[in-house]
Nucleic acid binder design. Structure first.
Lengths: 228, 228, 228, 228
DNA sequence: CATGAATGAGCATTCATTCAT
DNA sequence: TATGAATGAATGCTCATTCAT
């Protein structure tokens, strides 16, 4: 109605206050998400406890409910954020290379780096024994819970990384860089390899620094193995 | 003490009784371990409940404490059994092949099969985020908790599979089947790859049947990549 | 104070503003009460939630505290409204009849109808196991909690219906329609009867439709039983 | 097998110990039930709290779970016990009288006395707004939850008291003691009346001692009203 | 050898309420 | 006037563990 008027000081104050509050809110939200990731890493998905998350950030358990509807929603938000950033990272890496072998190498390095840099997130995204409840949202559809079993299997096809990986393999096979083979199966084999390295590095079975040394031998063996 | 005396009849009876009781004791112990494994298969390590184990064998929860110090100790025994059987499986596989590439192939297949056939066990052995508490025993020492971080890193050197893997690689490099490289790093790369495939197959990200199809492409790519 | 001074324009403005604000205040207060009644109807007194009342009217929970001291005070206001409307209903019914038996019949029917039409309200007014906290206000005094036990007993004497009931009985006894007896005890007997029917109808023990069929047998038996 | 042997001292001790323990167990069970009834009276069905019951008897909340499966089972047990004793009381009263009017009077007095003597129990049995979950057991059948809505309505037909009441009315009508009328409707009217008196006496609206005085006027009015 | 009784700690969640703004 | 942020208390329930027997 009267929006064209120059804002009074009160209005400006109000706006600033609102902004500040929103800033704080976003901040705390992120703080919670971070703490949730840590909690998750420390105790595993099944023993994940809202109350411990609260304690970690120094707020009362109730407060978390002001930012997330419930425990599940909190985990869900974490993983959704994670996939967004993951997809972007992978895409950038692939786009930065030209021929198929270079793309594979870039993709592999980016994938492993992402995992090593975001342990709790990676765990939540790819190392959950029971990701079922995440599926509907991840698939970006309103899939009814009934369909979940069916939906779980093809999930990986949706992950951007998977599509880029298959594309790179197809290109390499077509231009003769790689020997023939089913690109989807090969893609899964490569995925398994890099995922395995990250998994070990995030477990007490292999020290993360050591994992760094394994990256090159692993990738060069794989790409060499693909060649004609 | 008085051990040099000739045993009286009472002493012999006592001994026999002791033996019989020990037999029974061992028996129940194994029964518990078996039940624990099942429970564990059914509900996963995080939702593993002592009470349900007790119910499964028809004893009271308290009884379990007569055989194991606590829940953790029970899980520990389970995992130790697992490693024994795992080591045997791997050793048999390697011994069944002669040249290095065949040994690697056999080892890889056996490893993956073991994982796919014993999901919860594999999870407990290799996919626990917090295996710390397993370390001291696995390392066969009384390492105090303080040393744990140091202890975690070299764990994999103790695993029999790892040693066999390195040996096979060394042999292959020496006889010219494989191109040169650090056998330990290569071993870890191979380990990561097969572990990754099993991990995915045990997660909702990849269907176990699909994983079966990936085995061959994965192994052939790897072994091919090792060749000169 | 300074009330005798002639009002300045500013004072008048202030007064008008005050009035307007008070109008708004009364309005919102009533809105809250209405919403409380609905909430209360929907979920019953025990599961009555301030937060849901707030949501219903589109205000924050905090706002309600500007109009009522707390949850209890809000419920109290609700029940006070209920008694006002109840008293009016009963009075109208009695006034619509002339002789004592007809008045009793009318009163009984009106009472039962009120109950069947306002289940949660009736429950709050007459079926609360712990109405203690309502007493002081209902009795129109500032009776301290200590006096509550003493106050509870004579409450029913204050309820308008009770007075009208006693009056009708007295009239009937005096004019020979009814046989002799203590009108107060008889009034309580009649009250008990109609209250009992409503209570059953509001419980799962008797279907409300069935209760309708019981009204006539009940009232005719009672009035017949009062006759000489 | 060898049960015919005279019991050793150990066996006797064991048996005695068992018995004592069972005695204690029964005792505590009853203590819990009693406390539950009180809790229930004090805070109503919806605000009934297991933890408060525990506190009342001086045991930890967990302990209650050793005696009852959960909150619902506890309430259920209470009410089942109550119905058993109630049915017996009513039956005895009716059997102690011969002609129809005397039976009605006896039944009414017994009913009211039961209520006045077992406030929490009566409340739980007959004053619950939400007895739905009690229905299947009360109806003594395996009625599936789906049938509950249908089952709720005819519940009162199963209550022994109701059957005896109807029988007495039928007898009185047949032998000319009472004027004609639908015995079922009349039974419900009588039920409503006595239930109403008890309800008021158990509420703060009427003092229990006062209720005692109302019993006679109420019953005589009702029975008088039934006569020809 | 085995158990029944009991408990304390922990969990997710909801709610009435307070306080600073 | 109204609100958003935050909390403490409470709830039903499960579990690992202890202790006396």
């Amino acid at each position: 109605m009267m929006d064209s008027k120059p804002p009074t000081q009160a209005a400006r104050t109000r706006a600033a206050s609102l902004e500040r509050r929103e800033g704080r809110k976003r901040e705390l939200r992120e703080q919670i998400l971070r703490a949730a990731g840590e909690e998750f890493t420390a105790h595993g998905p099944e023993n994940f406890s809202l109350r411990r998350v609260a304690e970690r950030i120094g707020y009362s358990p109730t407060t978390i409910y002001l930012y997330f509807q419930n425990k599940e929603a909190l985990l869900l938000s974490t993983v959704e954020d994670g996939f967004r950033s993951f997809d972007q990272t992978i895409e950038d890496a692939v786009n930065g290379a030209s021929d198929a072998p270079a793309q594979l190498e870039a993709l592999g390095r980016a994938y492993i780096a992402f995992g090593l840099e975001n342990p709790p997130l990676y765990r939540l995204m790819f190392m959950q024994p029971n990701t079922d409840y995440l599926m509907p949202r991840l698939l970006g559809s309103g899939t009814a819970p009934a369909d979940l079993e069916a939906a779980a299997q093809p999930l990986h096809h949706r992950v951007v990384a998977q599509e880029l990986l298959v594309a790179a393999l197809q290109k390499g096979i077509k231009d003769g860089s790689f020997r023939k083979g089913d690109p989807v199966l090969l893609a899964d084999a490569l995925w398994a390899s890099v995922h395995g390295l990250v998994s070990l590095a995030l477990s007490p079975l292999m020290a993360p620094q050591h994992a760094e040394n394994v990256v090159s031998p692993l990738l060069s063996t794989l790409i060499n193995g693909l060649k004609a």
